[in-house]
Design a protein around this nucleic acid. Structure first.
Length: 163
DNA sequence: GCCAACGTTGGC
DNA sequence: GCCAACGTTGGC
């Protein structure tokens, strides 16, 4: 069972937005970075855990645990003209049967943290201080997290490590 | 709002 | 294929 950190700007899509979705689940749309795309397409698996992280936020923090509930499949927003994430080139390629460019997984809200685990908290705790999200210039929106880091963040958030 | 870091684009 | 210019991300 792998663990991940999923970044989202709460002004665009927050934990509360996720919880308001039918079934508290959603397709993790709009990732337009090849490295993150590869993880979504090839590596994330149903049953994996994710830390939902609010970037560009006040506070910038991990706010809850999500579960990956569907493995990678083509991102519907890439071919949806009405979507902010529409990608004309990718849509044309997909329409010709040449395969999708962008991928999503489905995620489901599992447990909110009792308190947000803020960036300073992550920096100060030696169990989490090496997390990728804290590195300078770490822009990857889907990041691997170790099981130990995941457990520590859950503890800091005041919840039991889900299993 | 600033700006450093990063990824992508495009001229050559 | 190189690399400068550009746009975006995201912490502060």
């Amino acid at each position: 069972m792998a663990c991940w950190l999923l970044k989202s700007e709460p002004s665009v899509f927050s934990w509360d937005h996720l919880c308001a979705q039918p079934g508290r689940r959603t397709a993790w749309e709009g990732v337009r970075n090849y490295q993150a795309r590869n993880l979504l397409r090839d590596t994330l698996q149903p049953g994996d855990w994710g830390l939902f992280y609010h970037s560009n936020a006040d506070p910038t923090a991990a706010v809850g645990v999500v579960r990956i509930v569907r493995a990678g499949y083509p991102d519907p927003s890439a071919r949806d003209k009405k979507s902010d994430y529409y990608d004309a080139k990718a849509a044309a390629k997909e329409a010709k049967g040449l395969g999708a460019t962008w991928y999503v997984v489905d995620v489901e809200a599992h447990t909110p943290f009792l308190q947000p685990v803020t960036r300073p908290m992550l920096q100060e705790d030696k169990r989490t201080a090496d997390m990728m999200v804290l590195k300078r210039g770490a822009r990857l929106s889907v990041q691997p997290v170790t099981a130990a880091e995941f457990a520590a963040v859950c503890a800091l958030g005041g919840i039991k490590v889900p299993k």
